[in-house]
Nucleic acid binder design. Sequence first.
DNA 1: TTGTGTGCAAAAGCTTTGCATGTTG
DNA 2: CAACATGCAAAGCTTTTGCACACAA
Lengths: 160, 160
Amino acid sequence: MSREEATEKARDLFAMYLEANKLRRTPERFVILEEIYKRKDHFDAEELYIHMKNQEMNISKATVYNTLELLVSCDLVKRHQFGKTQAQYEKAYGFKQHDHLICVECRKVLEFCDPRIQQIKSMVSGMFDFEINHHSLNLYGQCKGNCEHKAAQAKTESLA
Amino acid sequence: MSREEATEKARDLFAMYLEANKLRRTPERFVILEEIYKRKDHFDAEELYIHMKNQEMNISKATVYNTLELLVSCDLVKRHQFGKTQAQYEKAYGFKQHDHLICVECRKVLEFCDPRIQQIKSMVSGMFDFEINHHSLNLYGQCKGNCEHKAAQAKTESLA
DNA sequence: TTGTGTGCAAAAGCTTTGCATGTTG
DNA sequence: CAACATGCAAAGCTTTTGCACACAA
């Protein structure tokens, strides 16, 4: 699925979600969704807010946070806590689910996939009689070389 | 290893760490370590601070945070981010490493172990040429019953 | 028209910092 | 006695809230 297709689908899903929950289709909500789906990487609420301001868009922080919350609720956006404070976000629809590898030196965030995490989830779910909705797996470490990860990136892309 | 033995070992390790890093052996640092190793569950910095105040101990928040930081650095304490803000801590020496299952309804935190996480870490480490120091795996969901997890607790204890 | 959503600013909550004082090595 | 650690309070930073106005349904 191309980025454009994913964005279009996400827009439709968001509209349906809003309708189903009797929430309003405000321009702000769709502008924010649009901007998030233009992005490739992780971002935080502040960055998104600043970006809107730079575009001369009159969108408040309250609305940014409110909309992110809505988008997380309907699974169109994922929220992560890589560091101590500031949450990070990323688009979630139409892109392969993955986990994260964080370099504690350069703070770069890489993505990887491993099917074993699904097995762990099913097993734990059964053992505790829990319904597991989502998970967060972060590996922290440091790149051995010069914090250039291009070789590894290429490797995972070939696996995808 | 009993709780007392673990506490004693932790105290020694902390003393060695302080000496190795030319840091001072202040009473506050050891009182905090002691209190943490008395605890069975997760706690946050505020709880620890309040507890000290209730014991008529004159320990400031700054010292609580500073000491937690030191203890995390030398792996005697682990820091977790289960929710959005407030970090949670737990003692780490002499207790089996584990991951967490969080009920998003009652906020209860359960613990589980799975060897597959180690396999994932080695594989990703090799693939990205990364040195992985630690990880964080949290599963979020809800208990199907009444948020009583005693049966499951019993099951994991029998596995340990 | 009606009530939800928005912008703005202020408040809240967790953590860190600055400074004077105390205490370790 | 010379640094370093502490206590206290204030500041910092991210996120939430209150309120008046705007606008979607």
